[in-house]
Simulated assay, not measured.
Amino acid sequence: MSLMKDENIEKRLLRFPDWEHRNNSLYAEFEFDNFKDCFSAMSRIAFECEAQNHHPKWTNIYNVLKISLSTHDVDGVTEKDFKLAEAIEAIVEVQD
């Protein structure tokens, strides 16, 4: 997997309005109605992460989920991160 250039990342992010390029990673925050809904989304995301063998840095405080995606092998953003971001978007969208 090859490291993406900043300009390519910014172009791709136009399709991901919830995400931004921050500290060599894709970053997003999602707010849910309550802890239960947030944790439910996290559980579904976890199964997708396992399926893709790609795991985010994330934190959860009550109803807010913060996610940071980067490919550790290249210390930055790759296609792998966008693929997982797309799957996360689909999971979170279902929760709305």
Rank of each mutant, 00 (worst) to 15 (best):
F16K: 05
C49E: 05
D75H: 06
L14A: 14
D18K: 14
R44Q: 12
T78E: 09
E50P: 02
L13M: 07
F16P: 10
E20N: 14
N8K: 14
Y27L: 14
G76R: 01
E7M: 07
V64A: 00
E86Q: 11
N24W: 15
V92E: 02
S43T: 14
V64R: 00
L3E: 06
V77W: 10
V74L: 03
E79A: 13
V64P: 00
D81S: 13
S68A: 07
S68W: 12
V94L: 04
D75E: 07
E79Q: 13
Y62D: 00
L13Q: 13
V92R: 05
D18F: 14
T71A: 03
K11V: 12
D81Y: 09
T59M: 06
Y27P: 11
N34E: 05
E20T: 15
Y62S: 00
A28G: 05
Q95N: 07
V64H: 00
R44G: 06
F82V: 07
S40T: 12
E29Q: 02
E31L: 05
S40L: 10
T59Q: 08
F32L: 10
L3Q: 11
L65C: 03
K36F: 12
N63I: 04
A87V: 08
F30Y: 05
D81I: 12
E89G: 01
R22P: 14
E20S: 15
A46N: 03
N34Y: 02
S40W: 07
F47I: 09
S25A: 13
H72P: 06
N53E: 10
R44T: 08
R15N: 13
I9N: 04
A90N: 11
F47V: 11
T78K: 04
T59R: 10
A90V: 03
I45W: 09
E7H: 10
K5A: 13
R15C: 14
S25Y: 01
Q52E: 12
F35G: 00
M4R: 05
L84F: 08
S43W: 03
D37C: 02
I45H: 02
K83L: 11
W58P: 02
N53T: 04
A28M: 08
A51H: 10
K80V: 04
D33Q: 12
